[in-house]
Design a protein around this nucleic acid. Structure first.
Length: 930
RNA sequence: GGGCCUGUGGCGGAAUUGGCAGACGCAGCGGACUUAAAAUCCGCCGGGGUAAAACCCAUGUGGGUUCGAGUCCCACCAGGCCCA
């Protein structure tokens, strides 16, 4: 029956366009209503179809949106597809089927499955990141970023993105000193002046230098980056995909190789990304994760003069960043990253204390290690460079080592090692027998090694006795005064590597001329369409070659064809062959939903003003696995677009909520290894289970585990819907527990929710005639319970407490045996958001012609929520001893008197002294007596 | 190693935010209806204790604050997630 009713109404909603939400200016739009923009994280349409985790968040937003609509909001609730990405491409490599074919099949399947849940998406706004009409604007945004620079002085020192032409104009007009961007990480390194060098007047520079200067400011820039290159797979790999120098997939060797890559200067926004978190209504843990990822730390940059052979002053300094300048007296050695310029310099001057071969060997070895491996706190490795620096404070000579636990990407790629106050330095010092000097006095009972806590400074001359914060301040002041260092803020956040050597992604709207200079294509030549390929095999090569290089005709074109302004149309150009990473399309999709058919603009003004308002998306629900990457990247794009005046809200997502993971059961052997569920049998009863692995007859323990193919504990929503219907499925997932909690799937429990729907049905419908049945008159108890349910359900929906809302429905149908027509009318409205199909069926049986989805939410009477007579527990010494039945508003004195007069209580306190009587009116009485 | 979160019946969970622990559902037990089963309806359902009550114990463990603690504080144990 469920199948029949559900598919009938789903079809009707489609035909009626029940859930289509018009935009401002369109027919049917009611501008007097407030807006509610409720967004789900759109799915990656995999070939496997939906799993039971998808509909959890989607059902929650569906209920909320239906409720908000009934409460008089215009609701924007769209759905789309995050469809570029690796799995479709991997599949293409194996089968030769174009990723577009497999992806579109997967999308059709996902759409079919989602519609089967009866979700109230406005499908007219559906979009996919692979649609050329969509990625046209992804490319357009890239161009905006490419044509921008970050002016750190703008906006009162907060800094903002400005058009790159503003910068060029400043250079031409002499308003700004022409120099390389001092904040550009790709140009910093040992020996560079921290402030950049004045390049002289603009007109004195040749074209090439001018271009280099301008490019160093772009928010999207090309840079040599050391990546994990796997020749066999023909692509760069993420750190997480490399283990022991081999690729996780296939076990092929991985090299550290510099690659010319597109980068986003997200580091320029570090402070704003951090500060912006404060006002967001996001889970605290997510904010913390982003803040830690950004990793702001205050400290000092200090220059240590480099000394060769113990006396020859090089006239250069080794710059280090440290968060603990107060510990400089305890710096007993220095460490530079193996990629640091000083290592190469050491090898040039090999001889004496410098063992060039050993250094060379070490650097080669370190280059094969991923960042993750290098940061693992295992065995310390390193080589003495034979170079010393002079401690600027103590004037003592300190040896310089290279070791891979120092990263080139963090700070300056060099540290002053203070083993007394840093455990990694301590371990290293122990391993290589280097001196350890404590500069902070640990507490007397301290038994650890490095001491990182606070305490008075020792062995530190002018700092002695000062605590960390004072000592830091004093040292920074001293260094600044003597021009040996300065206060500096450092971030863990790195610039965002935006190139992939893959096929299935957005092409860059960039071409290179014959001299290798890059040019953005003009806006009217967008989209740069992804060319079809027939061969998706990675190019096996030592020199990284992106897959798109195979589309030779597409790659080699002319400026006219590609649409490059300011070049002769016949000039030969080659297209950028890297593609954008999967994050690109998901960085801004929430904007496009507002106005997805707009061919003139990314988003029209009226649509943006109404739907995004000042705070952006009202509620964004998705998994917390996106806590950092997607949610940080999207905020970054939004901020750039804000600076350029394209969007008007400062943040994309006002309120964020993470639904918990739906887990499953699995079985665990004594050694903690897992057993698939079909290899276990229950020899006990349901009440007292006793699980045994069939093959070994050994007992196993039932535990909660992630759903996975190998454990055979994956649940397919299609099967559940086929058996119980979508309404039951929706209720079950919402009744499992709090939305944010991770909860185990338990098929056996579904029946209870199925019974609820049947009880609802039987409460309203006479099963013999199929007609509605009504009570002659309203029962007081039922009427009261109805008011309570309306209040409770509405309140719970607002708080996303769907499990207790459903419990309130259970309580109602357990009380109500018959409803009047008026009661039924209200009841059906309340269940509408949860079980839209059954509700719609009953709603129409009640004689309505329009959908229950557009009905008003019923009101309730506050007075009905309050009991006139209540039960008050009486405690003696905090233990429940008796109860009073009293009028709700009985005052304190009366309650106290009644409690003390209670027979049971009198017996208990007989012979004791009543010390105190605590009375909470309407709550309880507690008697303290002894 | 650091950070965050969680721990309540056989199971999922509830608890007005410091005020009657176990709402609601599942499973289980007993009964009604039925030739029988399913479905449905009624009752019981943390442990000990009792003829039944009374009473005692109980929210991972141990302490603390409080008239009163599942809820707040400290320590520990176990599990999970994130970072390293």
């Amino acid at each position: 029956m469920a199948q029949n009713i559900e598919s009938r109404w789903q079809q009707w909603w489609d035909e009626q366009g029940t859930y289509i939400q018009p935009n401002p200016g369109e027919t049917g739009f009611d501008g007097s209503k407030p807006k509610y923009y409720c967004l789900d994280m759109f799915p990656y349409p995999s070939g496997a179809g939906l799993h039971v985790g998808h509909p959890e968040g989607y059902t929650a937003t569906d209920i909320l949106c239906r409720y908000k609509r009934m409460r008089g909001f215009n609701v924007l609730h769209p759905m789309g597809w995050d469809a570029f990405g690796l799995p479709a491409e991997q599949y293409a490599i194996q089968t030769g089927v174009h990723p577009e074919v497999t992806t579109k099949t997967a999308i059709d399947n996902f759409r079919r499955q989602l519609k089967r849940f009866g979700f109230c998406y406005d499908w007219s706004r559906e979009l996919g990141t692979i649609d050329p009409d969509y990625y046209k604007w992804t490319q357009w945004i890239f161009l905006q970023i490419y044509h921008s620079w970050f002016d750190p002085d703008a906006d009162g020192g907060k800094g903002k993105a400005r058009p790159i032409n503003d910068l060029i104009r400043d250079f031409v007009e002499g308003k700004r000193k022409v120099k390389l961007n001092p904040h550009a990480v790709e140009y910093t390194g040992a020996g560079d002046l921290p402030d950049g060098t004045d390049a002289g007047p603009w007109e004195s520079l040749d074209t090439e230098t001018r271009k280099a200067v301008v490019d160093s400011y772009r928010l999207a820039y090309l840079s040599q980056q050391v990546v994990n290159w796997c020749p066999k797979l023909g692509t760069a790999l993420a750190n997480e995909e490399v283990h022991d120098g081999k690729s996780e997939r296939g076990g092929f060797p991985v090299l550290r190789k510099p690659l010319r890559q597109w980068m986003f200067r997200i580091t320029a926004y570090a402070d704003r990304l951090l500060d912006g978190l404060t006002d967001l209504d996001w889970p605290g843990s997510t904010k913390t994760q982003q803040a830690e990822w950004i990793g702001r730390s205050e400290g000092a940059e200090i220059g240590f003069p480099i000394v060769l052979g113990g006396e020859l002053d090089m006239g250069e300094t080794l710059r280090v960043f440290t968060t603990r300048p107060d510990t400089i007296y305890g710096a007993t050695y220095m460490v530079v990253a193996p990629e640091h310029g000083l290592v190469e310099m050491a090898m040039e001057f090999a001889g004496g204390e410098t063992d060039g071969d050993k250094i060379k060997e070490y650097v080669a070895w370190a280059s094969g290690r991923s960042d993750v491996e290098r940061q693992e706190n295992k065995e310390k490795t390193g080589v003495f460079l034979g170079i010393h620096v002079r401690n600027p404070v103590t004037e003592e000579l300190i040896p310089v080592w290279t070791a891979d636990y120092v990263m080139m990407g963090y700070g300056t790629g060099a540290i002053m090692a203070v083993p007394g106050q840093d455990q990694r330095d301590w371990d290293f010092a122990k391993a290589f027998d280097l001196p350890i000097v404590r500069t902070v006095q640990p507490p007397e009972d301290f038994e650890g090694e490095a001491y990182t806590g606070d305490g008075p400074a020792i062995n530190s001359d002018m700092l002695n006795g000062l605590h960390i914060e004072e000592a830091k301040a004093k040292m920074i002041a001293w260094l600044t005064k003597h021009k040996l260092g300065a206060k500096r803020v450092n971030f863990k956040l790195r610039d965002w590597l935006f190139s992939r050597q893959r096929y299935w992604g957005e092409p860059f709207p960039i071409v290179f001329d014959e001299f290798g200079n890059h040019h953005g294509v003009s806006e009217d030549s967008l989209p740069v369409k992804l060319p079809p390929l027939t061969d998706y095999q990675p190019v096996e090569s030592d020199t990284p070659k992106p897959l798109l290089a195979k589309a030779r005709e597409w790659v080699h074109t002319t400026a006219g064809q590609a649409g490059v302004d300011g070049m002769h149309p016949d000039s030969k150009v080659t297209r950028e062959t890297n593609t954008m990473p999967g994050w690109a399309g998901s960085c801004w999709y929430y904007l496009r939903y507002c106005d997805h058919k707009n061919s003139e603009k990314l988003i029209g003004d009226a649509a943006q003003d109404y739907w995004m308002g000042e705070d952006g998306v009202d509620l964004y629900i998705g998994g917390n696995e996106h806590a950092v990457l997607h949610l940080l990247y999207a905020r970054f794009w939004h901020m750039v677009l804000y600076d350029l005046g394209i969007v008007k809200s400062t943040e994309p997502y006002r309120k964020l909520f993470h639904q918990g993971m739906i887990t499953s059961h699995a079985f665990q052997r004594a050694d903690k290894s897992l057993v698939p569920i079909d290899e276990v049998e229950n020899l006990g009863t349901d009440g007292k289970p006793s699980y045994v692995e069939i093959a070994t007859e050994q007992p196993v323990e039932r535990i909660v585990a992630k759903m996975s193919k190998s454990l055979k504990n994956v649940v397919n929503p299609d099967d559940v819907i086929a058996e119980y219907g979508a309404d039951t499925f929706r209720l079950y997932e919402m009744y499992m527990g709090p939305l944010e909690a991770s909860k185990p799937w338990n098929t056996r429990d579904i029946i209870g929710l199925h019974r609820l729907i049947q009880k609802i049905w039987r409460l309203c419908v006479d099963e013999t005639t199929g007609e509605l049945k009504f009570a002659d008159s309203a029962d007081d108890a039922v009427e009261k319970q109805l008011h309570r349910m309306i209040a409770k359900v509405g309140d719970d929906i607002e708080k996303l407490n769907f499990n207790t809302a459903i419990a309130a429905m259970f309580e109602f149908v357990n009380v109500a045996k018959a409803l009047t027509k008026d009661q039924m009318d209200r009841f059906v409205r309340v269940i509408g958001p949860f079980t839209p199909h059954v509700a719609e069926e009953l709603w129409h049986k009640l004689g309505n012609e329009t959908s229950v989805a557009v009905a008003d939410w019923p009101s309730f009477d506050e007075a009905m929520l309050i009991d006139e007579e209540i039960e008050i527990p009486i405690q003696v010494m905090g233990k429940l001893r008796s109860k009073l039945h009293v009028a709700r508003d009985t005052d304190v004195k009366t309650l106290e008197a009644m409690a003390l007069a209670d027979e049971k209580i009198r017996a208990l306190i007989d012979g004791k002294t009543v010390r105190k009587v605590v009375v909470v009116p309407g709550r309880l009485v507690n008697i303290v007596a002894n």
